[in-house]
Design a protein around this nucleic acid. Structure first.
Lengths: 360, 360
DNA sequence: GCTTCGACTGTATGCGCTTACATCCCGGCG
DNA sequence: CGCCGGGATGTAAGCGCATACAGTCGAAGC
């Protein structure tokens, strides 16, 4: 852990002329020690700059005081040599065209808040938080060996790994994931949120068909959102609807919207995520369709780009920060009460009405 | 660490009919074990879902395999009860005015990349990264007890704490900080970057005085940037210059720019950070001064807002990701060679030319 | 004056792992 | 045929701390 010096309880005990047990008590249960003794020990602690070893604490106490958060890794970042050039000097570039591609995509935008929420809650409860970025089951095992509980973003780790680890420590699965696994689940209200925004879109729509961009079939999130759309459509029976399910990417939204426009006018595009909706905006603009004048558009997720698009996108914001907090709280609850039945909580979402489908 | 079960080396050893030493060797130095034995042990490991305890490993091996990154805490976040309402259901809000205040400010924008760089580099070298957010010396001590080395953003921890901890483990100080401390330092080329951008501004300036917004006097960064401006001004002797040093905040930039305009026309505003420059843009716009037509403006830092302002701000981007990587590398170097003399490295910056002071 | 009790402190053990050192087993050598 | 060397494995000693348990001591109770 250190050059080799680094004082230990033994050093403190010797200088303070007490036993190591007393030193430990001063740090863990101060009230159990007479004040004069306590002051003497604390004095030595300060003098020596003593800091307890978390490893030893963890081993002796059977708990590390650390919670883990496992999120998807940044695939694009495995290009190491990129900015590796250590040359000194100042570079000057023309950045007017946005020529500098900020690679802060999904993660920065999305997990940053999750992380912050988890961190705040962990801190409030006297825990440290350790972040792991997914790159195979090896890395999650490593993380698992270091923490008292683990929050895992679904689809980041294999079912097998999650099941195996859940036998060893508390695990909470975030946002979708097979619910057969014997772990706590935490997700957002995909269905309710989608229903709400879809209802609004249907009310506000222009003449023409409704295009539903449903997202991939293997995504539990997409599945729930499709159900939300169905809920909304049931209240508007005689609507002409075009369905398309496919990847959660902008290109797909653009393509299918363009294709649908070729078949006739659209009055609304309801997309299962923001990328698809942004693609739809692209296609509508290219076709000269006014948004929201002729056609309204809605997305889901509440990513930053959706706020900055033209027009700004009506979408459903996921409460990422609250998710992070609740994940930590769920872990702590389970640590406190290991045999409690598995929870399956839903966090409420917020519909953000913006120009692409404005308030009535 | 767990409900109480969780297999240990002893369990694996028993089932594989070997000693715990052999189990340990299979995991740490596989080549030292006969292949048949190794396979047998690994089989049991998989079967049991065995994961080694990092605490025990850390204690026995005198190293945790974790590096720490200590960054400023999020002050604004200490408002816990805010989104604490657990009510279910979907909320709908009008977000057209940007009514949803995204609190992703300095940190998200700035430290996220630092974090990413550190994380990638740590991972590449088989280390985990633990993030600590500054809230007093207590929290940095806690972090220090858990890691093999610590990267600290300057001004996040007290000098006293840094000095104390540096006696215990390798510490690298990021971006400014008293260079008397016996630790490795890592910073960006404030002076060179500022000189480059200032030279460009002086070349491109319109008629009128040059306003230099120099930032606070107690900031080492600001001090270096002032020197950079001086360097640039030496090459343009007969320039009329107005200096102002003050807080790194937008309001200050706005005020002082307005005040300067009241005294006569400005041909350029050179600001020591982006907030000041954005404030200057505000004032120039309010006064009807065309940017860059009549007056050019430059900032420093490369925050996201600078890219989105109108006009987009010419600024100096700090290589945060590279900083993160290098910080980790510096720690590892020192861990490998504890008595090496202290380094004081500078990372190159990049001038981003945008509309507020475009390329010639 | 002796027991009782509680506040305080010391003794001793073990948490799960790594690693120096001892041991064992063989093939090869003199 | 005994000895040596080295590969493979076992033995045992901690790593730094928490904590159950066992004192110790003085004041209160009888």
């Amino acid at each position: 852990m250190t050059p080799s010096n680094a004082p230990t309880v033994y050093d403190v005990a010797r200088l303070a002329e007490v036993s190591i047990a007393t030193v430990s008590r001063v740090l863990r249960t101060p009230d159990a020690v007479k004040e004069s003794t306590r002051e003497r020990v604390l004095g030595v602690v300060r003098e020596l700059g003593y800091v307890p070893s978390a490893s030893a604490r963890g081993l002796a106490g059977r708990r590390t005081g650390v919670l883990g958060l496992f999120i998807p890794g940044h695939e694009a970042l495995e290009s190491p040599a990129a900015s590796d050039s250590q040359e000194t000097g100042v570079r000057v570039v023309d950045d007017r065209e946005g020529s500098r591609h900020r690679h802060r995509g999904f993660r920065a935008d999305y997990f940053d808040e999750l992380l912050r929420g988890a961190e705040v809650e962990a801190w409030r409860t006297g825990h440290a938080l350790m972040i792991g970025a997914g790159r195979g089951d090896g890395s999650i095992d490593d993380l698992a060996g270091r923490v008292d509980g683990l929050a895992v973003v679904a689809s980041t780790a294999s079912d097998e790994a999650i099941e195996r680890l859940s036998a060893r420590l508390p695990v909470v699965l975030l946002a979708g994931g097979r619910h057969e696994l014997p772990v706590d689940h935490l997700a957002v209200d995909n269905r309710g949120g989608m229903r709400a925004v879809a209802e609004h879109a249907l009310r506000s729509r222009g003449p023409g068909a409704v295009l539903v961009l449903g997202g991939p079939h293997d995504s539990p999130d997409a599945e729930e959102r499709r159900l939300g759309v169905r809920d909304a459509l049931e209240a508007a029976p005689s609507t002409e609807v075009v369905h398309d399910d496919g990847l959660f990417v902008r290109e797909r939204g653009r393509e299918r919207t363009a294709a649908a426009l070729a078949d006739g006018p659209l009055g609304a595009v309801i997309a299962a995520n923001d990328q698809l909706a942004l693609g739809a905006l692209d296609a509508l603009q290219a076709a000269g369709v006014a948004v929201p004048g002729q056609c309204v558009v809605t997305g889901f997720d509440g990513v930053e780009e959706a706020r900055l698009s033209r027009p700004p996108l009506t979408t459903v914001a996921q409460p990422m920060e609250a998710l992070g907090r609740t994940a930590v709280r769920t872990l702590l609850d389970r640590i406190a009460e290991p045999r409690r039945p598995c929870q399956d909580a839903r966090m409420p979402v917020t519909v953000l009405l913006r120009e692409s489908c404005p308030p009535a």
